[in-house]
Simulated assay, not measured.
Amino acid sequence: MNENDLLPVPLLAAVVAGFGLIIGSFLNVVIIRVPEGRSVVTPRSACPTCGRPISGFDNIPVLSWLLLRGRSRCCGERISLRYPVIELLTAVAFAAVVVWKGWSWEVPGLLYLAAIGIALAVIDYDVHRLPNAIVLPSYPVAAALLVLAALGEGRPGALVGAVVGCVAMYVFYFVLMFVYPSGMGFGDVKLGGVLGLYLGWYGWEEAVVGGFAAFVLGAVVGIGAIVFRGATRKSMIPFGPFMLVGAWTGLIWGARLVDWYLGLSGLR
């Protein structure tokens, strides 16, 4: 089937955004329950204040929060703005991936990365931890989706890059953890391997920029926290969110940034 016979990309993006709202609602459950070691399947969602089960009508992504004016129907307590924000963020991220890649075999893998990235970034911010329950299954899932993309697009060589990227990023972060254990956790090491799979699949430019951008972003935010919020060099700032944003920077702009730099320096 020719892609011209399928949905136009803008309409596809709208459909995927709707799917993203549903996934975002599920991510809210993941973000709360996984760090506590609870099942994300049972029991059903309940009011965080009084514990009463939430009806399906009151659990519609974003819309229910707006209709309830940000308050629980059962006890009237405020519902955190974080819930609809995460749902909207997931929808926007999913739509952006489709707008960026269109009808591509790469999209499923990138949507998966977007979903786990949002969950891991928020969890790391909350509890300074990247749970194995999310990170470890991401290895086989991401690998399977990248194999699908490589076969679908006729790029089997990209799988070699994915393996090299995975090993290189894992070893790199492992060495950093060994040298500076107070600033790097083993969760960062394991996440590095997952991100290396994606960055290596796309190419060395993406991998270099993706890895470097994480530290640039971390440094900028760290300096800002010291200057504007009174943080110190010993303040604990989770690094996972910077790794994730850095990886997306590499995936989207890595090749262009390397070309720009090489052209500017006269090396290309």
Rank of each mutant, 00 (worst) to 15 (best):
M1Q: 08
E3S: 15
L6D: 04
L7K: 01
L7D: 07
P10W: 08
A14E: 01
V15S: 03
V15C: 05
A17E: 13
F19C: 13
L21V: 11
L27I: 04
R33A: 02
V34Y: 06
S39A: 08
S39E: 11
R44E: 06
A46Y: 01
P48C: 03
T49E: 14
G51Q: 01
I54P: 04
S72G: 04
R73K: 13
G76W: 08
G76H: 07
R78D: 09
A91L: 03
A91T: 03
A96V: 06
V97N: 04
V107D: 00
L113Q: 02
L113P: 00
I116F: 10
V127D: 12
P131A: 10
A133T: 12
L136F: 12
P137A: 08
Y139K: 12
P140T: 09
A142N: 03
A143K: 11
A143Y: 12
L145V: 03
L145D: 12
A149K: 10
A149S: 11
L151F: 15
G154Q: 03
G154H: 10
V163W: 09
C166P: 08
V175M: 04
Y180C: 14
P181L: 07
G183F: 00
D188S: 08
V189W: 01
G192H: 03
G192L: 00
V194M: 14
L195Y: 03
L197Y: 01
G200H: 00
Y202E: 09
Y202R: 11
E205D: 15
E205Y: 09
E206Y: 05
F212R: 02
A219G: 12
V227K: 13
R229P: 06
R233E: 13
S235M: 13
S235F: 13
I237R: 07
F239R: 05
F239Q: 13
G246Q: 07
A247H: 10
L251F: 12
R256G: 11
L257S: 07
L262F: 14
G263N: 11
L267Y: 12
